[in-house]
Amino acid sequence: MEDGWLARVRQKLTGGKSPAPRDTWPDWYRTYREGYAPLPPPATPLDEISIVVLDAETTGLDVRRDRILSLGALRVTGNSISLADKFEAYLPVPAGFDASGSVSIHGIIPNSTRYHHMDEPTLLASFLQYVGSNVIVGHHINFDVEMINRSLQRHDAEPLWNTVIDTADLARRLRPAGYWTPPHDYSLDALAKRYSIPLSDRHTALGDCYITAVLWLKLLRRLAVKLDGDLVLGDLVKG
C-alpha cells in the first residue's frame, strides 16, 4: 500500500530525516511533531495497533480554493470501533463561499447553532492531539489529508506526518478493476453496497467515518483470507 505522496516527496527532499522543529511552528504543531512516534515495525500484528479513520466535509473538491467544513474521526483498535473515543468538529462557512451546494450534500446548515463551531487553529490543534502518531485510514483519503495539510500551512504549520492508507486502494487490491468492476465502482457508496454496509448518515463526517471504518474491517478480513494468515502492519504499509 502506498504512503501519502506528500510524505514521500518530503522524505526525498529531506533525505528521510525530519527537519529540526522550526521556531515559527505554533505550539500545538510542535507538540504533535515532538510527540510523534515512528511507525511500529512491519511485523507488528495489525490488531495490536490503533488506526484513525478520518473524513472531512468541505465546501468543494478544489484543494486550492475550498475549505474544510467539518472533520470527523473514529479510532479502530483490533476489530473494535469505539464510539466514545470519537473526534467531531465543525467550522463556520468561510466568507465568500456559497454554502448552499454543500448543504444539499452534507446536510450541514451553514453556521447553524446546532453545531458547536470552532476556529480553524483550534480544530487543527485538537485533531492533531486526537490523531497523534496513529496510521490514518480513509476513503480517497489523500484528498482529506491534502485539505488538512493546506489548512495547516495557512496556520504556519507543516503537513501531517502520519502514514496514510486509502480504503479505495485496499478495495482495488482485493478486487482489481476490470470488465466486471468499472473504475467508478470504488466509490464509498458502491463499496458499502458491495460489502452490505447500511448507508445511513452518509455525508456527515462522522457518519462517513463509521461506514469507512466498517468497510476497513471487512476489507481487512478479506485480505487476511487472501494472504492466508493474520495481517501484520507490513501487509498494508511498505516500510
Binding site: S80, L83, A224
Partner: peptide, 14 residues
C-alpha cells in the same frame, strides 16, 4: 449508553 458503545466486527469463525 449508545455513545459509549463499541462496535465490534467479528468475521465468521472468530
Amino acid at each position: 449508553v449508545a455513545g459509549r458503545v463499541e462496535v465490534r466486527y467479528q468475521p465468521p469463525g472468530t
